[in-house]
Write a protein that binds this DNA or RNA. Structure first.
Lengths: 150, 150
DNA sequence: AAAATTTCATTGCATATGCAACATTGCTGT
DNA sequence: ACAGCAATGTTGCATATGCAATGAAATTTT
């Protein structure tokens, strides 16, 4: 009647990774969404700007793994909220240079310690497993960019 | 001028997990999207039905971590494609019993081996890291349901 | 230097998503 | 048995998303 191979989604690594990642993201996003009205795309763009000091849409697309249209719209939203500034660039006028405003920096001075604390807590909870977990994540991320064994 | 804490998204575990999970999902989804027109929500519902033999929307919502409206719409789509059947239940007429059609089972006889091969390949590529990686995923998944240390 | 090609960012559009209503049915307690 | 409450699935609606097309500017080719 059945004739189907036995297969349990619960043990399937892509599924497990998706659920685990969703848990981590949502757990964190809950904080900065409810307290600061910041979504995950917002967060990624803001962090990259905090880290780099300034970047183009394309830079961010490459750095934080987001579609360029998503970056573009996120940037517009953040600009209209006064958190970042968009400035056409003199040298190459196709580029739009994005930077945090002072208000944006003030926000990040609150957000970044929160994220650092989350990371520390996570590492402490995972304990001995963390190092290997993190290393494996790194291997998977590299596969995305470089050679893909599948 | 800056006065911002140093923070690199690239080393942030929630971000890394999201990118790694996205890679795995997309890598796999590429196959069954292009070859069978199946999305990830489709896939999750189909797998659960293949595994359980039949389930309600609520069952699936709980089993595969999807919003019930998403499950509902996915089920409608799959029904209109002839891959699953929706049947009101006699005992509790709020429930809708979902099962694979013969066509759906035929599809799963192709898809499931493909997924099993992907899993095997992944385990082989990750080698010694796999066990610890999988265990850590399990710990994170449990946190979602049970006690949350954050 | 003109034309063709490439790069960058934005926008239009169709679809997907999450959340909150909603209608229906079942269950609980009195 | 009946009123109130809970559970189930669907739908409406506002927003988010991905992809392709576009416009504008730079680069490369001839």
């Amino acid at each position: 009647m059945e004739g189907l191979p036995e297969f349990d989604l619960t043990g399937f690594t892509p599924y497990r990774a998706a659920v685990a990642a969703q848990f981590l993201s949502e757990r964190l996003a809950r904080e900065y969404r409810s307290r600061f009205g910041i979504s995950i795309p917002d967060w990624r763009v803001l962090v990259h700007l905090a880290h780099s000091g300034g970047a183009s849409v394309r830079d961010i697309e490459n750095a934080v793994v987001m579609e360029k249209s998503k970056v573009s719209r996120t940037a517009s939203r953040l600009e209209s909220r006064g958190l970042i500034a968009k400035r056409p660039q003199a040298r190459d006028r196709r580029l739009v240079h994005l930077t945090l405003t002072e208000e944006g920096r003030a926000l990040m001075r609150e957000l970044l310690p929160l994220a650092a604390a989350f990371q520390a807590k996570l590492e402490s909870v995972l304990g001995a497993d963390f190092e290997s977990f993190d290393r494996t994540l790194g291997r998977l991320i590299e596969m995305q960019a470089g050679e893909d064994p599948f």
